[in-house]
């Protein structure tokens, strides 16, 4: 991958997993099927911190114009959204 390419979905999943584990310290491992709000209790303000951290770590900008709760129900949903709606900085 070139330095400023948009990250792959696998890379987004890996960083989301690390960041969510660090921020929310869940009892069970975070997987693609983890329900972010229903299982982890992710709030909108924590979601904002998560997106900011992800943007910094992956050097991307996430377009939030189409983001809503349905698109961040599971880690897989959010990874799909970010992969499709990000540009390299």
């Amino acid at each position: 991958m070139l330095e400023h390419d948009v990250p792959t979905r696998d890379q987004v999943v890996e960083r989301l997993t690390v960041l969510l584990t660090r921020m929310l310290r869940p009892d069970a491992p975070v997987t693609e099927q983890t329900q972010l709000m229903d299982e982890l209790g992710l709030s909108s303000s924590l979601g904002l911190e998560l997106l900011l951290a992800l943007e910094d770590e992956l050097e991307i900008q996430i377009d939030v114009e189409e983001l809503d709760e349905d698109r961040m129900a599971t880690l897989a949903d959010l990874a799909d959204y970010i992969t499709a709606n990000s540009t390299a900085r």
């Binding site: 869940p26 009892d27 069970a28 329900q35 229903d38 299982e39 982890l40 209790g41």
Partner: peptide, 14 residues
């Protein structure tokens, strides 16, 4: 059912 899916006691109670 949603409450039961919340893993942590504090989140479930809230």
């Amino acid at each position: 059912a949603r409450a039961a899916r919340l893993a942590a006691d504090g989140l479930r109670d809230r």
